[in-house]
């Protein structure tokens, strides 16, 4: 899905995936805090919160997946090598694409990590 053809990578595209992780993290934290922090009724089930976090997780994973897909494809098109120390714009692109891919992989894993508490904990205790 390359609507605009090949993207020019830069520092913003590099940090897009971890930024999605950060959004996901803050969303989970704030929603849970909003539900539970008044400490009015710690035994209430928080099914709605868990569901909302689940939905947002899926959205975030899809977005990170798109970043993985884009950077993977463009990296492959560029030859897919991990050698990226030449003095050419292609090497710079290859470096940024590969680093984006790695960061997207890390962010994907971290988002899954963040979601695990929701699978196990069902109330505000």
């Amino acid at each position: 899905m390359q609507i605009f053809g090949k993207t020019q990578d830069n520092l913003w595209t590099l940090i897009a995936a971890p930024t999605i992780w950060a959004f996901h993290f803050l969303f989970c934290y704030f929603l849970a805090a909003y539900q539970c922090a008044p400490n009015a009724d710690p035994f209430t089930r928080i099914g709605g919160t868990r569901l909302a976090i689940g939905v947002v997780t899926v959205v975030c994973l899809v977005l990170i997946g798109l970043i993985v897909r884009r950077s993977w494809r463009e990296w492959r098109v560029d030859g897919g090598g991990t050698r990226n120390n030449q003095d050419t714009p292609e090497a710079r692109e290859r470096f940024l694409e590969f680093s984006t891919l790695l960061l997207a992989g890390l962010s994907f894993t971290a988002v899954i990590f963040e979601t695990m508490p929701v699978l196990l904990i069902g109330d505000c205790r």
């Binding site: 989970c28 934290y29 805090a33 539970c36 508490p117 904990i121 205790r125």
Partner: peptide, 20 residues
């Protein structure tokens, strides 16, 4: 005394940072 679910999020991130 924060709710366990909040602690869980931070515990998960604390483990994830070990990867990089």
């Amino acid at each position: 005394g924060l709710p366990s679910i909040s602690l869980g999020f931070f515990s998960a991130a604390s483990e994830a940072v070990a990867i990089p």
